[in-house]
């Protein structure tokens, strides 16, 4: 078939196989997108077709009802308190567990895999489901929200922390071991100084996440500012909802800013 006199000319910039993979992937992505759009009746075009409608509806939120702000503060502080308490407790609880899910500390394969499995399951549970269950168990209020946030945060923290421990420099622990230190001394002198700033930083990060999450929890009665949103939506009092939304937004921005500055200073 190939004539030795004929020069080989590549037909395409890419090998045939790459081209095929990319084409298939694109068809898959777009096909799945079409199915999704039909199923959820959410063609982006709709958004532009209904834009007049949308602006009118959004208009119901404005202007925000600033007189309502006074009633927001106490619940807002409750949200912050929930986030502070749950992040602190979750960080403390996560420390022993992250040692169990770090490959270089927990060398027992079965224990390691079991802990990983449990952790992965916990991480799939949405915060709202946790809140629903704990509100059912402990009744409406802050306590249920705090417990839900603690478990939610542990899922995030243990993963981040165990990854940090897996990435530490094991050389100093060898030096401590060689000078006759016992296991606790090795952890305290060689491991803790390497991971502590990271751990505090993760604690702050989880605090940011928990502030957002605790907005959701209030919707099912687990305390915090979300409860107010729920009531006001039921009253169709949209200007008040907008007030809450703006206040939450500002608080989240401020807290994120402070927390990220602190975290920069740490690492």
């Amino acid at each position: 078939m190939s004539n030795p006199n004929e020069k080989y000319v590549p037909k395409s910039l890419y090998p045939t196989k790459t081209k095929l993979t990319i084409t298939l992937a694109l068809v898959g992505i777009i096909g799945f997108y079409l199915i999704s759009s039909i199923q959820t009746e959410s063609f982006i075009v709709n958004f532009f077709l209904k834009i007049g409608n949308v602006t009118e509806l959004v208009g119901r939120f404005f202007p925000p009802d600033w007189s309502y702000a006074q009633q927001v503060w106490s619940k807002l502080f409750e949200t912050i308190h929930m986030a502070i308490i749950s992040s602190t407790i979750a960080t403390l609880i996560s420390i022993p567990f992250c040692l169990l899910t770090a490959r270089n500390i927990t060398t027992n394969k079965y224990l390691y895999n079991t802990m990983r499995f449990i952790l992965n399951i916990i991480r799939t549970v949405p915060d709202i489901v946790l809140a629903v269950v704990f509100v059912g168990l402990f009744g409406i209020g802050v306590f249920s929200g705090i417990i839900a946030l603690i478990i939610f945060a542990i899922g995030i923290l243990v993963k981040l922390m165990s990854e940090t421990i897996e990435s530490i420099d094991m050389n100093p622990s060898e030096a401590i071991k060689a000078s006759g230190g016992n296991t606790l001394q090795i952890i305290w002198y060689a491991v803790v100084p390497q991971v502590l700033p990271q751990f505090i930083s993760f604690g702050l990060y989880v605090f940011e996440v928990n502030i957002r999450a605790s907005v959701v929890l209030g919707l099912v009665g687990a305390g915090g500012v979300g409860q107010l949103i729920n009531t006001q939506i039921n009253f169709l009092n949209y200007p008040a909802v907008m007030t809450i939304v703006i206040i939450i937004f500002v608080v989240v921005v401020i807290i994120d800013y402070i927390s990220s500055k602190l975290r920069e200073g740490l690492v």
Binding site: D169, A175, I176, K177, A178, S179
Partner: peptide, 29 residues
């Protein structure tokens, strides 16, 4: 191990700790 000291190629100090704390670690045993 207490009576046998060891020096490593990569020094194996704890980077975030002070020099004094690294040296006093020799007393851990």
């Amino acid at each position: 191990r207490k009576k046998i000291g060891m020096i490593f190629q990569s020094y194996n100090l704890v980077h975030r700790s002070t020099v004094l704390k690294n040296v006093i670690a020799g007393r851990l045993g």
